[in-house]
Structure formats: structure tokens, C-alpha cells
């Protein structure tokens, strides 16, 4: 067949490979959505229906009572107050931890971006290592240290621990972001009479909004999903949602209420999920940020 004379826009071509590719992506998406589907469906069934064992079947009549139980009546051992206590504990732990670690990390990163001593690369390598060392190594010394300053098993204690563990990575991210800001911008601000804090709050921080969003999301999901530190440092009254979820799911008394377990799990996971959905646009913008020319 003679090739058509090329003229105007190139015609779109649909090949078998393309179709195969999309088919594969579709199947893969279904595969990964299946657990979520099962969880939602199961949480809406009654225990009688669950016992039938059709885990992929839709509920006969959607029943939200498992959700109500999970939120306000599920038992952890002998206490039956639901996961809402854990929810509010997690909020009380996560919000201040994120705010403090992001703010202090931003100040640190800004200061370090201005300060370029000899051996700076070694220092930043150490900082990076600080963000990568497994938490388990720190646990025992950290418990002793917190006990010594009377913060062990307290809300302030668990917040402090999260801030400390978050800082290396947050500082590094902000430092690398601020290093890309042209030096002349700082000089211009100094000629205009601005000092360290004024430059930070009025020029650097507004520029770093995409970075603040990304770092906040990383910190938020990390701290919300934390189990180990919450279990060790928070104390009985401040156990985060993840720990309480575990207590509900692993309770051994009587029948396992799968519908309540599923509902409680979804409730725990929904917060970080919502954060991603609501700020996805900002997340992409922050990750691709580098274009600070202006």
C-alpha cells in the first residue's frame, strides 16, 4: 500500500499493543482495588451474611450498624467505647507533631541553606543517615531519656518523639529546596533591610508553600500510620488509632466481628487517604517544584 502523502497533523494510530497495554492496566487496577472493595462490602453486611462466605457478593441490605459499633462501641479487651477515642488521640498527636516538625524543619533547612561550612556534604550525609536509621535502634535509649525528663507515657512525650524523628528528613528536604533559591534574592532583601526572620517569613516561606504541603503530607501520613512509637511512648491514655485498631481486631473474646473490624480499619485509613485526595494537586506541584525563577 502506498504511504499517504504526509500533510497536516499526524493521524492517531491504534495498535494491538496499545489495546493490550490498556487492558493490562485496567486489570491491574481492578486487582489492587479488590481488597478495598471486599472491605467496604464486608463492613456493610450482617454477621449472618458474612458467615455464608461469599466475600465478593454485594450485601443484601446495606447495614451501617457495624460502622456505628466500630466508631463508638467496639471492645478493646473489656472496654467497649469504639475507635473514636483513638481517633481523637491520633488527631491530638498528629496535628501538633506535623506542625512543629515542619516549622522547625523549615527554619533548620533555611539556616543550613545559608550556612555552607567546609565539610557541609558530610554533615548532610549524616543528616540523611539520621532519617534512615531504623527506629528500633533508638527505642531503649529514647525511653530512658524520656523517663529522665518525665515525658514518658505522655502526650507531650509522644509529640516530642515524632518531632525528633521527623526532623532529619524534613530539614534535608527544606534545605535542598532553599539552596535552589538564587542567592541574589537574599541579598536584595538584605539591602531592603530585612533580617533573618523577616526574610524567612515574608520571602522564603511563601515561596516554599508547595514544599510545605508535600512535607506536611509525608509527615502526616507517617505519624498517623505510626504504630510502634505510639505504642511505646504515648501511654495508656493517649494510644493512637492504629494501636486501638489492633486491639479491636485482635480481641480474642467471643466471635470475630469481621464487619466491625473492616469498618474500624477503613475509618483508620480514611484520614491519610482523604489528605492525599484533597491535596493531590499540591502534591504533584510540590514534587515538581524547582521552578523558583521569578
Amino acid at each position: 500500500m502506498a504511504r499517504p502523502h504526509p500533510n497536516g497533523p499526524k493521524p492517531a494510530q491504534i495498535t494491538a499493543g496499545r489495546i493490550g497495554l490498556y487492558a493490562f492496566l485496567f486489570v491491574a487496577a481492578l486487582f489492587f482495588l479488590l481488597p478495598l472493595y471486599t472491605m467496604i462490602v464486608t463492613s456493610l453486611k450482617t454477621m449472618d451474611e458474612i458467615r455464608l462466605g461469599h466475600i465478593f457478593a454485594l450485601p443484601e441490605a446495606p447495614d451501617f450498624s457495624a460502622w456505628v459499633t466500630a466508631w463508638s462501641g467496639a471492645c478493646m479487651g473489656t472496654v467497649c467505647v469504639g475507635i473514636r477515642i483513638g481517633f481523637w488521640n491520633s488527631v491530638a498527636i498528629t496535628v501538633p507533631s506535623v506542625a512543629l516538625s515542619v516549622f522547625i524543619g523549615a527554619v533548620n533547612g533555611y539556616a543550613l541553606s545559608l550556612w555552607r561550612p567546609r565539610g557541609a556534604s558530610v554533615l548532610f550525609g549524616l543528616l540523611m543517615a539520621g532519617g534512615l536509621i531504623p527506629y528500633q535502634i533508638f527505642l531503649y535509649p529514647m525511653v530512658r531519656a524520656m523517663a529522665n525528663i518525665s515525658l514518658y507515657n505522655s502526650l507531650a512525650g509522644i509529640i516530642l518523639v515524632h518531632v525528633i524523628f521527623g526532623l532529619p528528613l524534613v530539614t534535608l528536604l527544606f534545605r535542598n529546596y532553599f539552596v535552589s533559591v538564587p542567592e541574589e534574592l537574599c541579598k536584595a532583601a538584605r539591602v531592603d533591610g530585612a533580617g533573618f526572620w523577616r526574610i524567612f517569613f515574608e520571602i522564603m516561606l511563601p515561596m516554599a508553600v508547595p514544599m510545605i504541603v508535600v512535607v506536611s503530607m509525608l509527615q502526616f501520613t507517617g505519624i498517623w500510620n505510626d504504630f510502634l512509637l505510639g505504642l511505646v511512648f504515648a501511654g495508656r491514655d493517649n494510644l493512637p488509632m492504629t494501636v486501638q485498631l489492633n486491639n479491636i481486631v485482635n480481641t480474642t473474646m467471643g466471635e470475630r466481628t469481621y464487619n466491625v473490624n473492616m469498618a474500624a480499619t477503613i475509618l483508620t485509613a480514611i484520614v491519610p487517604l482523604a489528605v492525599y485526595f484533597l491535596s493531590g494537586r499540591w502534591f504533584v506541584r510540590g514534587i515538581t517544584a524547582g521552578a523558583v525563577k521569578g
Binding site: 538564587p182 541574589e184 536584595a188 532583601a189 538584605r190 539591602v191 533591610g193 508553600v209 523558583v292 521569578g294
Partner: peptide
Amino acid sequence: EPKDRGIGMVFQSYALYPR
């Protein structure tokens, strides 16, 4: 300090405050 010297300065990269 720069601000007390009675100078104004213009830079090659403009250095405008982007936000």
C-alpha cells in the same frame, strides 16, 4: 548594614520576591 548605607541595588537575576 546594607540598609543603613543609603544605597539601592539592582541585580542581574532581577531577584524579585516571587510571591
